[in-house]
Write a protein that binds this DNA or RNA. Structure first.
Lengths: 203, 203
DNA sequence: CGCCCCGCATGACGTTTGTCATGGGCAGTG
DNA sequence: CACTGCCCATGACAAACGTCATGCGGGGCG
């Protein structure tokens, strides 16, 4: 049996260090490449053609999900999985629709991670039960496309006038969307709405 | 020479896994305890009396700095150091004034971490050069105590009325502080101010 | 001591925002 | 084709917000 070839992409070097521990215990895994940024991960994947790519969700350059989509197009044989510290429900959904095979919080142990890598390599999927429950209970985003767009422009606390200009909309319209979004999310005002949408991964 | 006794506290299991790799390479370090939350870290420290405590900044229960202050009071012989993914200048300052001996980003390798642990155990300090530069250029918080307090209450987008009640202040006063804070930070409104203050670690 | 500066606190005033009613255009569905 | 839901826009009114003038009290300085 030939070993599973793994690509590790994470800007936190300590996390990339974990597989060293992994290798000491598991002899059917081999780390063929490491990367600290999104673009670097892509380049490494092209060069080394891993069986499984383990991607951090938050990386400089490009986030894990977008790397996964690129990878899916370029290297269909390569399975991808995401690890993250912040398990937002929306991110999980985005990842799964991007064809990611596993979604794992960084709270797992190296041993568990090894198991999940094997699961993924065997063609199966894995999602952390906790995160899955959150995602299901949180449900889908109730926001329309425009509402989400406007809410995103409001994310850094910009005044309505600026948002209206950047979205090429009337101020009244912007206020309407913001109001609609806030009420759909059960928020008192748009800023609280932004916060909630962020928490659920809808922005 | 007897080995350095280390406590590891981090909710991300993968990070705690790194020292396993470390142990394979370094024979003068021994991990005597691990913890995933703030309170757990304290309990473990009391039970095992480590030489050096390596604490994550963001943990459930209590953050690394508050654990460090408690530790300093209870186990003066124990040196503390902080590791973190998000290197905010303000956090570094808070940590140092709390008597923490080292402040390190998670981008370091396990080998570097080992070196820093030795440095700390020898009685020296270490701060990541990058973070130090940021902290110096960012400077001190220009906010007065009340301004910071009110800004913090405004952090989740609450309306002024609620903030006023929670701070036992008049609404006008709250608006004043918020306005002052925003202008000091160069922000257009309080929400942008909150965002900026967060980035700099001043809240 | 008298002085001034700064932090703290408040109410008043004009502006921005949230909300609601209303209406037209446009796509998808039964 | 009628219907429904989304998008875009407008105007009006009340509530929330930002800014200013003002006043009080304590610490540093001449």
């Amino acid at each position: 049996m030939t070993a599973i070839r793994v690509l590790l992409a994470d800007d936190e070097h300590l996390i990339r260090g974990a597989p060293a521990a992994l290798l000491a215990l598991e002899d059917d895994l081999v780390v063929v490449a490491e990367a600290a940024t999104g673009p670097e991960a892509l380049a490494m994947a092209r060069a080394h053609r891993p069986d499984v790519a383990v991607l951090d969700l938050e990386m400089p350059g490009a986030d894990g999900v977008s790397v996964a989509t690129s990878l899916r197009a370029e290297l269909p044989g390569c399975r991808t999985m995401i690890v993250t510290s912040h398990g937002r429900p929306g991110h999980l959904k985005r990842a799964l629709t991007a064809g990611v095979r596993a979604f794992v919080p960084k709270t797992v142990s190296a041993r568990q991670l090894a198991g999940i890598i094997r699961t993924v390599h065997a063609g199966n999927r894995y999602v952390d039960p906790e995160l899955a429950a959150d995602a299901i209970s949180a449900g889908d985003s109730p926001l329309t496309a425009r509402e989400a767009e406007v809410l995103e422009l409001a994310a850094d606390g910009a005044p309505v006038a600026e948002i209206a200009e950047r979205a090429s909309l009337s101020q009244g319209t912007v206020r309407n969307y913001l109001s609609a979004a806030a009420s759909k999310l059960g928020a008192e005002n748009r800023h609280a709405a932004v916060r909630l949408a962020r928490e659920r991964g809808w922005v």
